[in-house]
């Protein structure tokens, strides 16, 4: 923190009520918090605009047999395809505004209230450009990179010598088999693992992760950070669960950086609450 009270002239003028005339650089929009804004700028980037992609999607119909563990591949495909569409529209918007990438991407799903087969998928993030026009931060194939990391995490990631490539994801909608009556009766009074349930959840999660990992491989990433596994049942019948894995694929920064130059974290004991 720079000590003392050095408030820049421009800020002081604004506080006295003087407006700067005209904004030659145009107006940017962003969903950053102010701290995020600060750190993205510290990282050497400037926001250019909010990038939004959305997709309203009708889910197809699929029947699962009552007593079988199985992937609902129609639904898996739908959930993946719809998100991909939303993301690609967001990316197209970023390209349109000449962004180097999108940070702080938020993926949400909303149900339309008049029909539970219709879901809306939204991808929203802030397009950023490198302030000095450094070309080395684009994602795969010269397209804007995408990342679900917050502005703070973005700064930290760059400090750690990595840059984001692409948001990668994997989706698996799974039907967990119902227990047969005889099986259920057999368990009465016993402490026992319900192996078919364990198996189903295990398998579904595994599939989602594998798919995500495969995407990262295709993006030629070294790894995936900030992975989050979501379990959701979007108002489907009980026993149908979606496992959704999402994270940011990263690669070491081309600007070589010795590990010793990465600053050591300092330990603090904060007194505020």
């Amino acid at each position: 923190m720079s000590d003392g009270t050095a408030i820049p002239q421009h800020a002081l003028a604004r506080l006295k009520g003087l407006r700067s005339e005209g904004h030659p650089g145009g107006i940017f929009t962003s969903d950053f918090s102010v701290n995020e804004f600060l750190l993205v700028r510290k990282a050497g980037f400037e926001p250019v605009g909010l990038c939004v992609g959305s997709c309203i999607y009708h889910l197809g119909i699929q029947y699962a047999s009552w007593s079988k563990n199985q992937e609902m591949d129609v639904l898996s495909q739908a959930m993946y395809h719809a998100r991909e569409l939303a993301m690609s529209r967001m990316r197209a918007e970023a390209e349109g505004m000449g962004a180097d990438g999108i940070v702080g991407v938020e993926l949400t799903v909303k149900r339309m209230e008049w029909d539970d087969k219709i879901l809306e998928f939204i991808a929203i993030g802030t397009g950023v450009v490198h302030a000095k026009g450094h070309p080395g931060f684009k994602g795969p194939n010269g397209k804007p990179f995408t990342s679900d990391l917050s502005g703070q995490d973005f700064w930290t990631l760059l400090q750690a010598g990595y840059r984001p490539l692409e948001m990668v994801m994997g989706s698996c909608v799974y039907h967990v088999a119902h227990q047969g009556m005889f099986k259920a009766l057999g368990n009465v009074g016993n402490n026992t693992e319900l192996t078919n349930y364990s198996q189903a959840l295990y398998d579904a999660r595994e599939i989602a992760m594998e798919r995500m990992q495969h995407e990262a491989l295709q993006a030629k990433a070294e790894g995936v950070v900030g992975v989050d596994l979501h379990e959701g049942s979007h108002n489907w019948q009980p026993h149908i669960i979606e496992f959704f894995a999402v994270g940011t694929a990263v690669t070491p920064n081309t600007i070589e950086r010795d590990a010793s130059t990465i600053p050591d974290p300092q330990l603090v004991l904060s007194v505020n609450n």
């Binding site: 923190m1 720079s2 050095a6 820049p8 421009h10 650089g25 600060l38 750190l39 700028r41 510290k42 400037e46 302030a131 700064w155 930290t156 400090q159 600053p263 050591d264 974290p265 300092q266 330990l267 603090v268 004991l269 904060s270």
Partner: peptide, 17 residues
């Protein structure tokens, strides 16, 4: 001010609580 360098130094800290 766009493309203005942020004067702050930022330190990595780990909170011990």
């Amino acid at each position: 001010e766009r493309y203005h360098v942020v004067p702050h130094d930022i330190r990595h800290v780990v909170d011990m609580r």
